[in-house]
Simulated assay, not measured.
Amino acid sequence: MLKNEIFFLGLLAAVISGLLLLILLYLVIRKWLEDRERRKINECIETLSPLIFAYITEGEASRHFQLEGKIKKKAAEEVLTKLAANLTGEEETGKLREFADRNLRNYFQRQLKSRRWSTRMNALYTIEDLHFIELQPQVLEAAKRERISHDEKVQSLRILAAFQFEGIPDLLLYHSENLSDGELRNIILRLNENLFSHFIADFHRAKNPLKYAVVDAAGIRKELKYLHFIESVYASYDGEPRLRAVKALSSLGMVKDITPYLDLRHSEDWKERMMAAKLFGSLKEPELMPYLLDLLHDRSWWVRSQAGQSIMMFPRGKEELQIVLDTSDDSYARDMAWEWMNKGEFG
């Protein structure tokens, strides 16, 4: 009985050792193949770089532009990506895209349909880097695909926004499930003024994450033409959209009339009181200083901190904080005044 167990354990150990050896052998061979492929790509890059550069800058064609095989096409992709990051002229950029369209269109189309997620994502990033607008139909197809990873969906929409695709408003209204407001904001900020205006016109139809992204984007753009829209959101909505509107107004640094926003300092929601302090600081109107000093005594640390920061944005902000430090009976307010007066002087 014992001999049988020992034999079985020995056999099991031999099998496991054999499997581990096979795995090790597989990894060694795979690494060797990858290194060999990388060397070939690097050799092609050295050959293709001056030829592609000459074509893009001088329009010189060459018989060496016969890019057969995966190695040469991968090398050309890397050369074009590096060039795209450094080219600024419209003529050179146009020639780069012309070269890519002529030589690599089919290559990228196959990559977009690859079974490997990494290959598809790499193709999307390269299409964005090259501003390969000729592949917009394929990118649109990917964006609408039901079975697609989250990262692919986001990247496809980013590309379409960068290409100023006219159908992007409908895509985001009806095909942006599970995208966060941050991801949507990043996409929307790539749009020109005309496309962005569609989101303002259809704001009431958007779901909450898209609403938040549109209001945020209006504030980040810092253009006074969006003031009416942002104030209308504040007046018409409660909760998060209203908070985002106040934050956007703080970015603009302007309101038509401060009166509708004064009651925020008495809100039961600490986030609204904090946004009130932020808005008052961005406006820098002297009559708002007493309200900020009141908010410096708020029960919420976040509100006190924002009030202190906003007070420091005024020309005499430091002097006002010194008065609080010298006269206030509220130790929390004094601590916050001291913190903002000395911010940056330590550590």
Rank of each mutant, 00 (worst) to 15 (best):
T259R: 14
V255Y: 03
N342I: 02
M289V: 14
R120G: 00
Q309W: 11
S282N: 02
V215S: 06
F196E: 09
S176G: 13
R185W: 00
A75I: 03
L11F: 07
I6C: 07
E68G: 10
I127Q: 03
F346S: 12
G69V: 13
M274L: 09
D238V: 15
E183Y: 01
F8I: 06
A248H: 00
D151E: 13
E319D: 12
G94V: 04
K144L: 15
E177N: 11
E46M: 12
L2H: 02
N342Q: 08
P241D: 00
L243Q: 11
L172H: 02
Y234N: 14
S305Y: 06
L20A: 13
L104W: 05
G344T: 03
P260R: 11
G89I: 04
Q164W: 05
Q138G: 01
P137N: 08
K278H: 04
D216K: 10
R39H: 08
D170V: 03
P286K: 10
H131C: 13
K284M: 07
L12N: 03
L210T: 04
Y226L: 02
T93H: 10
Q322G: 00
L2R: 04
K74R: 12
F8D: 14
W270Y: 12
R39E: 11
M341F: 09
L104D: 09
F65L: 11
K3Q: 15
E268W: 13
G317P: 11
E319P: 12
I258P: 07
M341D: 07
S17G: 11
D330T: 08
T259D: 12
A217W: 06
T126W: 01
F8K: 15
A307S: 15
W338E: 15
A76V: 01
L249W: 05
T259K: 12
A218P: 03
L224M: 10
Y212G: 01
R63L: 14
R265T: 15
H198D: 09
H175L: 04
R30N: 15
A333W: 02
K113T: 08
L33G: 04
R185I: 02
I45Q: 06
G219F: 09
S250A: 14
